[in-house]
Simulated assay, not measured.
Amino acid sequence: MPVGAWDSHMHVTSPDYPLAKTAAYKPSLHSLDHAMTFEKTIGLSNIVLVQPSIYGNDNSCLLDALKEIGPSKGRGVVAFDPNDIAPDTLQSWHKLGVRGVRLNFKSTNESFDVEVVKKSLRKYADIVRPLDWVVELFIDLEQLRLITDIIPELGVKFCVAHFGAPDMRRWKSYPTDASDVPGMQHLTTLLSQADNLWVKISGHYRYDLSVDNMAGTESITKLLLSTARDKLVFASDWPHTRFEGLDVKPFVSKCLDWADEHDAKDMVFRDNAKFLWSCT
């Protein structure tokens, strides 16, 4: 593991914090202490805490954890309503280490209206642009292809979580030609042409049909590495919500190997994340 590496996507949860009415599950206790104990097992000490959908726009659990770890080793990606957020609140979060906002299109049952989504993206971009924050999208590739035209023009950094949630069930040439994944060519084209898009290498077990040998994940990761190795960041997705108990170490090891094959280990595990999350 490169010195100073970052885990760009993980969560802390606790039953002590109130759930949103739309919460899809009830969390166990996955505290910051638990998180850092896990990170030590894979050689990491720098983390990006991402707001889980179960808490809606109440970021209290995440913010309390950021206060504890400090901005030198922690970053945060929050959720908020763009129609009801005060500049002072954003500034106070920024001081704690928040560097992004999460838009979740996968863990909700809301319809994906393209024009409504584009209008929302413009609102969020206008709000976070002065802070140089990231707009993180939990979105699938076939939704992403509908908004690729607007991403380059908004003047903020975008990050797509979990490989873009690929639908490997419809991958005709699985697991060989990753460009055949529905929507993948839109992602690789955008990565090649836009200078403001990153992708998280994470959450493979949520989509791969061969989770044990990660054949599909390997093909996709290598395609993305060959397309834009400077636009990829590693993430563990700990504590693997709804997949608790998963051993992610084989995935970490594979990612190190795949990145090393493309002479990109320092990039994927450290340098890209430091730039994306504005880490000095």
Rank of each mutant, 00 (worst) to 15 (best):
L29F: 01
L29Q: 04
H30E: 03
H30Q: 07
H30N: 07
H30F: 13
S31P: 08
S31W: 03
S31H: 04
L32K: 12
L32H: 05
L32S: 10
L32W: 06
D33I: 15
D33Q: 15
H34L: 07
A35I: 09
A35H: 12
A35M: 11
M36V: 07
M36S: 10
M36H: 12
T37I: 15
F38N: 10
F38G: 10
F38A: 14
F38D: 09
E39D: 12
E39H: 15
K40W: 00
K40D: 10
K40E: 12
T41P: 04
T41V: 05
I42L: 09
I42Q: 06
G43P: 02
G43R: 02
G43L: 10
G43E: 06
L44M: 14
L44F: 05
L44K: 07
S45L: 11
S45K: 13
S45T: 15
N46A: 09
N46E: 05
N46Y: 03
I47T: 01
I47F: 00
I47D: 02
V48Y: 02
V48F: 00
V48N: 02
V48T: 05
L49Q: 01
L49T: 02
L49M: 04
L49K: 02
V50Y: 04
V50W: 01
Q51H: 04
P52T: 08
P52G: 00
P52K: 05
P52H: 04
S53Q: 15
S53H: 14
S53P: 08
I54L: 14
I54N: 06
I54R: 05
I54A: 12
Y55L: 13
G56W: 11
G56T: 12
G56S: 14
G56P: 14
N57E: 11
N57W: 11
D58K: 03
D58T: 10
N59M: 04
N59G: 03
S60E: 01
S60Q: 05
S60A: 11
S60G: 02
C61S: 09
L62C: 00
L63C: 08
L63I: 10
L63Y: 01
L63D: 01
D64V: 03
D64W: 02
D64S: 09
A65C: 06
A65N: 06
A65I: 03
L66N: 00
L66A: 05
K67L: 08
K67I: 05
E68W: 01
I69T: 03
I69D: 03
G70C: 10
P71A: 14
P71K: 04
P71Q: 11
P71M: 08
P71N: 07
K73F: 02
G74S: 02
G74K: 05
G74I: 00
G74E: 01
G74T: 00
R75A: 10
R75I: 06
G76V: 10
G76S: 07
G76I: 08
G76A: 08
V77C: 14
V77K: 10
V77F: 00
V78S: 06
A79F: 03
A79C: 12
A79R: 09
A79S: 07
A79Q: 06
A79E: 00
F80E: 05
D81E: 07
D81T: 14
D81W: 07
D81Y: 02
D81L: 11
D81G: 10
P82C: 13
P82N: 12
P82M: 12
N83S: 13
N83E: 13
N83F: 09
N83V: 07
N83R: 13
D84V: 13
I85T: 12
A86E: 07
A86R: 13
P87D: 07
P87H: 09
